[in-house]
């Protein structure tokens, strides 16, 4: 066995020396990864695409019945799909927008001369590494209307108790608040990294020219930081579209359908409706929207780089 392996190995080396590499170490190293990825990413993706044109359910797991665009049209005709779509788009825009603005502000503050920076960094990374389910459960207790700390503090300040998760108007914002609390660190850290890596010279030049802090920010910092900021927004947008755990733990899409985000809609179609074909179709509709957004963002980024 050992002899055979050695012989094979030697033959490979000779082949390589003759200019015909049979397998370079590089290919050999990536082959297992590529095979694994093909099995766990590409194959399921392709399979679910095929399924989305069939009548595949958990009860009749067959893909031999081609139904064309039926599943897609059914989703588009469902008013609760459009509600979920609306809730999701509103959620993504607001959550990413708020996180970006607040995150940028905090990153600027942290970038300045500040004591105990290490402590702030440590605190900031904690929510990011927590599991969303844990975060949801903790916040659900904090926001408990009668027994939660948040309402207790508010009542002490003379502010009326808030029905955080029980009112359809408020539940959406409560969810947003928790998501911002957890995910803003990501934005801050990425933007911080961007700020730190900016070249010093343009700032020195601006200072010599007598630019104020705001002028420096507007004419130097923001243009230089744009590529990093766009990447941060891009990644967070993709992540926000996939939000699921928080909704599942905190509101289950309710009250009514006020927090019924699309990933939760897909989950229900799959595991309660048992309709994998329909769920795949909705997933591909979501993917299409996300892909368009990514394409737009990438074209902006690439344009920036070209400029």
């Amino acid at each position: 066995m050992r002899g055979a392996a050695t012989t094979g190995h030697t033959a490979g080396v000779y082949a390589a020396r003759r200019g015909k590499p049979l397998a370079t170490p590089g290919t050999m190293f990536v082959t297992p990864t590529i095979i694994t990825l093909a099995f766990v990413v590409a194959l399921p993706l392709a399979y679910s695409f095929v399924i989305s044109f069939s009548r595949f359910t958990f009860l009749t797991p067959r893909v031999d019945q081609f139904v064309g665009l039926e599943n897609y049209l059914k989703a588009l005709a469902d008013r609760y799909f459009w509600n979920s779509f609306y809730v999701t788009v509103k959620y993504v825009i607001l959550v990413v927008g708020v996180e970006f603005l607040l995150g940028f502000l905090i990153a600027l503050l942290l970038y300045g001369d500040l004591r105990f920076k290490g402590v702030y960094y440590a605190i900031l990374t904690i929510p990011m590494v927590m599991s969303p389910v844990g975060v949801g459960l903790i916040w659900k207790m904090l926001l408990h209307p009668g027994l939660g700390v948040v309402n207790y503090v508010l009542s002490r300040l003379g502010i009326q108790e808030v029905n955080w998760l029980g009112s359809p108007a408020m539940a959406f914002w409560s969810l947003l608040l928790v998501d911002v609390w957890q995910q803003i660190s990501f934005m801050i850290l990425v933007l911080m990294a961007g700020l730190v890596s900016l070249p010093k010279e343009p700032f020195e030049a601006a200072e010599i020219d007598g630019a104020s802090f705001l002028q420096q920010l507007w004419y130097v910092t923001i243009p230089l930081l744009k590529p990093v900021a766009l990447i941060a927004v891009l990644i967070r947008t993709i992540m926000a579209f996939r939000t699921y755990d928080l909704v599942y733990v905190m509101t289950r899409g309710g009250p009514g359908v006020s927090t019924d985000i699309i990933s939760y809609y897909i989950y229900r179609t799959t595991f309660m409706g048992l309709d994998l074909a329909q769920a795949s179709a909705v997933s591909y509709l979501l993917l299409a929207v996300v892909l368009v957004l990514i394409a737009i963002l990438f074209s902006v980024i690439l344009k920036q780089e070209a400029a």
Binding site: K140, H144, P145, G146, E161, N163, W164, L165, G166, S167, A171, M250, T251, G254, P255
Partner: peptide, 11 residues
């Protein structure tokens, strides 16, 4: 209780 429209068994 207030907020019971979002309560589960634990709440």
């Amino acid at each position: 209780p207030k907020g019971a429209t979002a309560f589960n068994l634990d709440d």
